[in-house]
Design a protein around this nucleic acid. Sequence first.
RNA 1: GGCGGGGUAGCUCAGUUGGUUAGAGCACAGGAUUCAUAACCCUGAGGUCAGGGGUUCAACUCCCCUCCCCGCUACCA
Length: 678
Amino acid sequence: MTKNYKRYTVTAALPYANGPVHIGHLAGVYLPADIYVRYLRAQGRDVKFICGSDEHGVPITIRAQKEGITPQQVVDKYHQLIRDSFAEFNISFDIYSRTSNQTQHETAAGFFTNLYNKGVFEEKTTQQYFDEKNQQFLADRYIVGTCPRCGNENAYGDQCESCGSSLNATDLINPKSMLSGEKPVMKETKHWYLPLDQYESWLREWIVEGHQEWKANVYGQCKSWIDGGLQARAVTRDLDWGVPVPLEEATGKVLYVWFDAPIGYISATKDLTSDWQKYWQDEDTKLVHFIGKDNIVFHCIIFPVMLKAHGDYILPDNVPANEFLNLEGDKISTSRNWAVWLHEYLADFPGKGDVLRYVLCANAPETKDNDFTWKDFQARNNNELLAIFGNFINRAVVLTHKYYDGKVPAKAELQTADVMVLDELKAFPGIIGDLIERYRFREALSELMNLARLGNKYLADTEPWKIIKTDPDRVKTILNIALQIAASLTIVAEPFLPETAEKLAAMLGIKTDEWAAAGAPDYLIADHQIGEAALLFQRIEDETVQAQVQKLLDTKKENQLANATVSPAKENISFEDFSKMDIRVGTILEAEKVAKTKKLLKLKIDTGLDQRTIVSGIAEYFIPEAIIGQQVSVLVNLAPRAIKGIESQGMILMAENADGSLAFVQPSEIVKNGSNIA
RNA sequence: GGCGGGGUAGCUCAGUUGGUUAGAGCACAGGAUUCAUAACCCUGAGGUCAGGGGUUCAACUCCCCUCCCCGCUACCA
């Protein structure tokens, strides 16, 4: 099973260049990848760490249009921002490239041509919606219209968020382009498809049988996709932003981003070294993709099929995907600005990159979604990094200076306690390294802290500050061993906390880059001079984290206000049209949640005319018991409709806030049920 | 709707192929100590392992059902 690889190619998911990166990106992908790579390097292994910005695709063109700039300007801006953020957190890519560059265009086009010449693709001509005003085909996501199932007027071409049904763009009533607001027309277009279905049995053999060691979330997803049957997927798209399809008949078409992006790993490697083929085409190379869970299908199914179809490439040995990180109980969301942005964190906490690395690794979403809170951030800094790690180093160094002018004392005869501690010390690098190789970074970090704990306990048990008065020679041994622990800590901490390790190495006068030296009982030789004690970590006060929480709440609020756009007025209607609507005041008599739905309440309403049942999508904002007795406005002559098998006879009028929350439209004082609203 | 992951101590999480009294860190309580950034060290309390049923000598672990959270369902880590 375990193969002895000669070298490693490690990739981290290409961040999409239409926004900055936040703690979720770091915790989910870049930090674990960086720890893995730093560890491999410290082991002296041959490794290339590859990443870059993903700069193509529709969302970037939309963003450019919104901001009134070119797509290139959009990606230039975010490419730099993202690259700098990673650099500041010491994510040690060997190259951070980008998919809009020349190498990528050539590589991706060449890859396509290779598969095309092999006859891999299927060609299909289909009808798609086309925006005549903007002269472009529309992705399903960019078409809005009325949902044929529930009547929601803001359903997307792929899904209605009101009733949850998944749709085809052609199902929508009154479709409109989100780009121009115009009604799109159907137009014929030809595309090339990657026949994933033809690779099903191969995928089954490769993953379902061959990679049962993959993480449960990854393996489970892959198996479910393969079992569920795969479909051919278009690899081209009608768009002018991307890698042009290298065929005469395909002018105006580009490669679809998911085909283009993973090839970015290869082209980035080309930009890094002329030796790139060794890292992609040699069976002795171990390929590992670090990604988030949303990317599993691309890295485990689609890209491997591309590589397999090409034939010259190796396949990933593992794809350690993480789950998602939440922030203070809510999903991280770029559009809602609910995030801790990396560039902002560093502005607020200069020099504390390692603290965030520590916290995000200790609480990484390795097996399930996790929550980042500022309170936890503070606690981990103060109670763990500072109290256990920093404090141990400080004690050892301060005592050495106090008794021996900062010179490492020589060991005398060892006692049982010393031997036991040295034995434990010896075991740590192997334990931690093994965990890293198994992608269990959280546990590896916790073992790192246990090493610091070992040091603290050793000092507490041997009490050199007491013994110095009675048995000074004994103290020499104790401090020698304490410093050996500190030295090993430096080395094994480097993958996790590179800045701290560097400071520590400077303090102890050692190097950090030799993993093999960690755990040794005599790494520091007698009389070696160490530097003055400097604090590795500072206490983080309550006010500091409170300010961060406040900042988060403020930006959320500001963002909400900014987003509270008023939708444009609809077309004029005649009085007759209006008077067709029969709106009455009614009272809610009963309310209960519709089983197995998130949003639906089944209401019984006294409309004055009758008592009727209405199903309303308001359950997320109201507790059923609490709304009984309230008066509401009811559209009573809306044609009945079955929702979840219950006939809904009318509609409750609601006012919707910017955040999606709802309020009843109700009379300011109690009126008789059945009163007309006109 | 289909599928995947998860539900274990107040909080964040471990728990390998079913096998004694279910573990760790943080928080909490008590003690000890003063070299150290009010830090360290020791001890303790704290769990119907979401709920129900089944298989078994034995179930957190395997099977079935129910509930809850998250995600995917084909371009937001």
